[in-house]
Structure formats: C-alpha cells, structure tokens
Design a protein around this nucleic acid. Sequence first.
DNA 1: GCCTAACCGGAGCAAGCGCTCCTCTTTAAG
DNA 2: CTTAAAGAGGAGCGCTTGCTCCGGTTAGGC
Lengths: 239, 239
Amino acid sequence: MLRKSADRGILNAVPLADQPTPTPAPAQPAKRARRADAERNRDAIIEAAGAVFAEQGGTVDVREIARRSGVGMGTLYRHFPTKDHLLATVLEQEFTSWLTAAHQTATATEDPWQALTGFFEQTLTHLARNRALVESYAATGGPTHECARHRDSVFDDLRTRCLNAGLLRPDVSTADLVLLITSLSRAIQATGDSHPGQWRRLLRISLDGLSSRNTEPLPEPAPNADPGRRWRAAPGRLG
Amino acid sequence: MLRKSADRGILNAVPLADQPTPTPAPAQPAKRARRADAERNRDAIIEAAGAVFAEQGGTVDVREIARRSGVGMGTLYRHFPTKDHLLATVLEQEFTSWLTAAHQTATATEDPWQALTGFFEQTLTHLARNRALVESYAATGGPTHECARHRDSVFDDLRTRCLNAGLLRPDVSTADLVLLITSLSRAIQATGDSHPGQWRRLLRISLDGLSSRNTEPLPEPAPNADPGRRWRAAPGRLG
DNA sequence: GCCTAACCGGAGCAAGCGCTCCTCTTTAAG
DNA sequence: CTTAAAGAGGAGCGCTTGCTCCGGTTAGGC
C-alpha cells in the first residue's frame, strides 16, 4: 500500500543536463561518435517510457520500461543517469510539443474567449491521456520550471486578449488560470474511466465563473505564507 | 519517485469490521473484558495516527505512528489488522465528525446560497488541514462508500434548497458538486504553504459559475463508461 | 497473593524498487 | 581483418516498508 517514496516527488526538477544534443564536444581529441545501436536504443527507451508513464504514471517500476523497450537495465541507465531524468526528458518533450500546438491553435482563433476556452479544452483533453503529466502538474506545476514559465506566458497572452475585449473578469490572474488547470486535472483523474467527460461540465462551470459577467471582486490572496500551517513542505507530492 | 502502489488507492474501501464497539459478544462463556492498558493504547494509536496522517498523508511509515504513540509494532498490529484499516478508522472518524458539524452549520443558515458557499468553505478549510483526507478524496471520493453516501445526501439537500430558491443553475447535479470539491482539493494541495488561501479565489470563481445567472446548459455527461479507454498512451508525439 | 490469558515490544522476514557492477558482445576506425 | 572502445544485459546490492513471531510482562478474576 501507499509508498513513501511518492514523497520524493514525481521529479525533483532535474536539470536535464543530458539533452538530445548528440553532437560531441568539438574539443581536440575528436571523440568517436555515438554508435548506431545506442541511438536506436535510446529512442526505443524514450518511446516505451512515454507510453508506460502515460498509462501508469511516474511510479512504474523501471524494469517495466526496460522490458517494454527490449533493453536491459544497464542500457537504460547508460542513457539516463536516473529514473527522474528519463521521466523529465519524456515529460518535457510531451509538454513542449503540446504547448506549441495548443498555442498555435489559440493564436489562430479570432475570438479571444473562444481561444481561451479552446485552450483549456485542448489542454485538459491532453492531460486526460497522460497520467504522468497530471502528476507533474500536481508536483511542480509542470515538468520543469522552464516549461511552466513558457506555459505561463501563453496563459498571460490569452488572458490579456480576453481582458482587452472585456470578456474576462478583471482581477483574474495568470496564477488563477494555472491553478484552475491544476485543479481540473484532479477532476480528470477522479472521474477516470467510469465517468469520462464529466470534467467538461466542471470546466464549463469554471469558465462561466471567469466571465466578466461576474462583477464581484475575488478575495485578495494572502501576501505571504502562513507559518502556522500544518502541512510539511514535502518536495513535490502527487495527489 | 512516485509509487506504483498509489494505484491501489489510499485505501481499498476496507470493510471496517473492527469498529469502536468494545462490548464483547454476550455469548455464554462471558469472555474477559478488554484490559485497561489495551484500551489506552488503542486510543493513543488512533490519536497519533490522526496527527501523522494529517501531516504527512497516507504514505507514512507505520513505524512512525508506532513511535509517536509510544507503542511497539506488535501492539499496533494487534489493534489494527492492517495499515489500511487504521487509516480507514481514522479517516472515517475525521470525516463524519466534520460532516455532522458542517451539516448543522448549513442547516442553521437561512439563505440557501449562503449555506452552500459556507459549506464549501468549511469543507475545504478542513481538507486543507488533512492531507490524508485529500488523498482519500482523490482515490474513492471519501474514506468509505458509507461516508461518501452521507456526504452526497448533504450535498443533495443543499442543492435542492438552492434550486428551489432559483439560485443554482438548474442542471447542476450532486455529482458535479462532489467533483468540484475533489477538484478544488487539488488546488489546496498545489498551493500548499507558498500561496495559502489562493484556492479561495478559485472557489469564488467556481461558485459564481454555479449561479443561476449562467443560463447555458452544461454539456451532457457521457451515458456510460468507454471500455476502450485505459490511460492510453499518447499516440506518438503530438504536434 | 497466584495464575493465566491477554498484552507488549522490537528484531526480523519478505517483497518491491532504484541503481550498480561486471562480463560478454558489437561497432567501426584504421 | 584487427582491435580497442563503446555498448548490452541482468544478477544482485542496499534500502525502504508492510507485517509477523515469540519471549517477556502485566492486568485482573479468584
């Protein structure tokens, strides 16, 4: 039952030092290039890991990933120093490719409100298919801080467009929108397969609440952390 | 990193066969009553477990609970056959005592809308203080099915009152309200200590979206579960 | 005060999981 | 073709964690 290791978080904001930059350092000795089989295996690992993480979440046994990609443990750990590094790599890829697509869709949509709601719908549909991604939202608001910043800028863009058109209640912050996504991702997880799509009703309700037809101001956020709170920090906890 | 067993949920809807009914069966042999020290230890365990679960969630090491209650492992497992049983006992106590209080408050509130919003506020404030309770919401919608049913009836009561007063958009279901609580509990977890109270803004937004001033109908829920879905992998990189 | 069933405590077992070590195989430069 | 470096693979280590076992202790009926 319930493992403590979950406390270590879905990923610890790993620096991702090993990027897909196969170009060797142009130093003097001109090291030998990466072998073809190694390249092939790396790809296989990433693909298998992507599938497994999406299905089972970030808690899967590394052996399962190795098995599915037809590779040994040693090979896996040759390419990725840590399970968290592998997870971060996969999630970052998934996240940025989605964000780029969703942003393009939103930009191509004339009506600002339509752009905002469409973005939410697209985001959550994507999240509904990827368990590890949902977990990463719970832990750190996204796979990496870099990713989160990128997403925030997109959100801010959408928000500004809606504000200028007078469609959004004026005191909604970008942080509110991000928190809304995080919150709704829980609804997706909770409904799961038994009530697919019920989260869309909640999304509609929330979006209606964002509309400028609601005139009362939102409660002010507390300016700083309340030290009296009982929850320990516990770096990155999934829910 | 992330645990696999999380899949098993925070608790497996344990039957809770061992209730706080210390009365021995009134059978013929008139068994000896429970010893005083045993009773004391049981209480100490429940109290310590309550604190530890609230702070650290359901994943804590059982040894920590034993240590805090000043009791050995053997003693702990004499009173509770399983960690999950202990967790269920604690959560059920916490849940019902809260639900009773919150229901009374709501019933005593004249204005139906005030009663509903107050109930949400009270519930979420309580959840913000108990990590294990939040987890149980994510897993099964509440500590036990019994608890969940009780809560649903309270929600249904509040909903009916608001509907009769014409304050709630008419097609909001009880399930929507429960899902909203579940969803917002994630917001509480996500904001944690760093942005305490930010979830109140989201709560306000959602409640505004529930108001009858929003006239458009909600999307129909899918009638039944789609058996083909199972956290399918993202079909290749999207983009 | 005696005696026995009930109780206590913690060392230890088994299973799960991240990760390493080491031997054997394969690639590709020369 | 030769050969050395890079890669592959899987048994196994170390650690955590849920739970058990059993010798020692104590309450409480008589």
